[in-house]
């Protein structure tokens, strides 16, 4: 066990920003994807773990704060000097004398940015600057809070690719907050779903997918004709522009895909679609809450 959260409540004034009743556990090597819409409590959770905000409840960990590395959503540095000096001061090293740091700088293609001031860097360069320093910490637990937010598609892809490759085969635990679910499909092995400060569910990625979506899902665009065509299949909750269907077994999947192909409908098959899983987890959670109240 690296971290356990029990009965956690965080309030901003009178408003409850985060409430975790059931214990949440994070073990060594876990890669937890934290998802939820804006205001769900994702950053609040990270800040609580890091001790940056007041909270009630228990956060038990065998890691001291300096054993946790963090890439916050917004990272700012002094603008009175070039990035090189900031990096060397924070990491207490000289770039020229540190092969590991040199490797990371090269890996993230940051060489040409070292002489620039932080405010002169582009969004992607700013993210890479913090990532390099966070990675240099080699912490047992690292938080990445919306590391790719605000980046264009290509930069985002490239950055994620580098992060995935870097952490492949490493023991470190990661907590990754992201609105881009395909990133978590690649990086996370556990998912924590938050909504309006509540825990909707927490567990293994596959386990949660099977719980809410079954064996696999087939997703395609919404239209009245499409709706009519697949009216006999079990529909899952999905974003408005999509139809998501649960396929229980191979036979059902074959039948459905044949039907879609024969009607020339483009579809996508997935057994780890976090977006569909998230929509269904939320739907079931609130349904159960209503049932409980009744």
């Amino acid at each position: 066990m690296q971290l356990t959260i029990e009965n956690l409540t965080v309030k901003y004034g009178a408003e409850i920003a985060l409430q975790i009743n059931k214990p949440l556990q994070l073990s060594e090597g876990d890669r937890v994807g934290i998802i939820g819409s804006n205001g769900a409590g994702k950053t609040t959770l990270i800040k609580s773990i890091l001790g940056l905000i007041n909270y009630q409840g228990i956060i038990k960990t065998d890691l001291s704060p300096d054993k946790m590395a963090t890439h916050m959503q917004f990272n700012e540095y002094t603008d009175t000097m070039p990035c090189k000096y900031i990096m060397e001061a924070i990491l207490e090293t000289k770039i020229t004398k540190n092969p590991k740091l040199k490797e990371l700088i090269t890996y993230f293609e940051f060489e040409n940015c070292l002489r620039k001031k932080y405010s002169k860097l582009s969004g992607g360069q700013k993210q890479r600057f913090t990532i390099i320093m966070v990675m240099m910490q080699e912490a047992p637990l690292t938080f990445y809070d919306e590391v790719t937010s605000g980046l264009d598609f290509e930069t985002r892809q490239k950055l994620m690719e580098k992060l995935i490759n870097w952490y492949a085969g490493k023991k470190s635990s990661l907590c990754i907050v992201s609105h881009y679910y395909e990133e978590l499909e690649q990086m996370a092995n556990k998912i924590l779903i938050l909504d309006k400060g509540k825990v909707i569910d927490y567990g293994g990625k596959e386990q949660l997918f099977q719980k809410y979506c079954g064996r696999a899902v087939i997703v395609f665009e919404t239209s009245p004709e499409h709706e009519l065509l697949v009216k006999n299949y079990k529909k899952l909750a999905s974003p408005e522009h999509l139809i998501a269907l649960e396929v229980k077994d191979e036979a059902e999947e074959l039948a459905l895909t044949r039907l879609l192909l024969s009607n020339d409908i483009n579809y996508r098959r997935s057994s780890n679609d976090i977006e569909i899983m998230y929509s269904n987890a939320k739907k079931i959670y609130y349904q159960e809450e209503v049932n409980h109240e009744l």
Binding site: S64, P65, D66, K67, L91, E92, M136, E138, A139
Partner: peptide, 11 residues
């Protein structure tokens, strides 16, 4: 792990 740890001395 090779975590750098908390800075405790004047540098």
């Amino acid at each position: 792990m090779n975590c750098r740890g908390k800075r405790t001395r004047v540098s």
